[in-house]
Every structure is written in structure tokens, then in C-alpha cells.
Amino acid sequence: MLIKMINHITINVKNLEDSLKFYRDILGLEQLDIVNMGDHELIYFALPGGTRLELITYFGTNQDINTNPSDGGIFRHIAFEVDDVRDVEKWMLENAIEVTLSITRVPKLGVYAILVKDPNGVELEFIQKF
């Protein structure tokens, strides 16, 4: 078996309108296809390197799940590398996005990091190498 790349990352959405605004309008991701699967819909966005973000909304059955950064489990966050975390933090605050960790220097990893939550409660990390 040879893994060639990550094809897509899926996020179950709580509110489609809020999620579209966040990923398309605030993060500026290019929206690709919308696929109606019958009982749910898939909305794809282009990520750098050919990977796609897949937002999935189940018609009438999405549930509200709350998580905290210290929660154990099988998934923690998605991390994106950016040119300037200061710009990211400013943009998030201007758009009323919850910043759960302000800019933090992480010497052991050689990065500055910021954590935010998307409209679905998914934690996103933005890092800048130093």
C-alpha cells in the first residue's frame, strides 16, 4: 500500500450557512462541487496541494457536539501554515470568530500558533514558522 496524498478532510456541519460563510468568505477557500447524496449533501472546497475540504450536512439530523481543546478523543484539530499569524488573528477577531488561543510562540516546534473554532466547534490551528 502506498498513500499518495490526503484526498479530503470531512467536517460535519451544524449550520450550513455559517460554515459556508466561514470557509468561503472568511478563510477565502474556493468552493468546488456540491453533491446531493440523497440523505446528505457534500460541499467541497479546494485546499493547497490538491487536498479538498468536505463539508457534510445531513438533512435534518446534524447534532450539536461541543468539544474543548483539552478533551481526549480521536481527533484534535486541523493545522494550516500561513505567512503571518498576526494577520490571521486580526482577521478572525474582525469577523467575530472565537480565538481559543492567542498567538503563542512554540520554540520546540519552531512556530507561532493561534487556535480558533469554526462554526461547528472544530478547532483550527494556524501556524507561522520562525
Results as ranks from 00 to 15, higher is better:
N68P: 06
R24E: 04
V35M: 03
K14D: 04
D18K: 15
N36W: 03
D64A: 10
G28W: 08
G73S: 13
K14C: 08
D87K: 15
G28L: 10
P69M: 10
K129S: 13
G72C: 09
G60Y: 04
L101H: 09
V99F: 01
R52A: 02
T104R: 09
L109R: 14
I34N: 02
R52V: 00
K21E: 02
E30L: 10
S102L: 06
H40F: 12
V122D: 00
L16Y: 04
N62P: 07
N15E: 06
K90D: 12
D39P: 00
T104A: 08
A96E: 12
N62W: 03
D118F: 11
T104H: 01
D39N: 13
Y112H: 06
I97V: 15
N68E: 12
G49W: 09
I127W: 03
W91T: 13
S70V: 13
L93C: 02
E81C: 09
N12Y: 10
E123Q: 15
T104I: 00
G110K: 02
D83W: 02
N12S: 13
N15H: 05
K90Q: 12
G60K: 05
D64T: 13
L29I: 08
I114E: 04
K129L: 13
M1D: 11
E81G: 09
P107W: 07
F22E: 02
T10V: 09
K21W: 03
G60Q: 07
S102I: 01
I34Y: 01
E81R: 14
A79K: 10
L27T: 02
R105C: 02
F45M: 00
Y58A: 06
L109C: 03
L55G: 00
M92H: 05
Q128D: 11
G50H: 01
F75T: 06
Y58T: 13
E89K: 14
V35F: 03
D87C: 10
I114N: 03
K117M: 11
G38A: 05
P48R: 03
K21F: 09
L101W: 05
A96Y: 08
N68L: 14
F45Q: 00
K108E: 13
L93A: 07
D71W: 08
T67G: 04
D84G: 06
E98M: 12
N12Q: 13
I97S: 04
L47K: 04
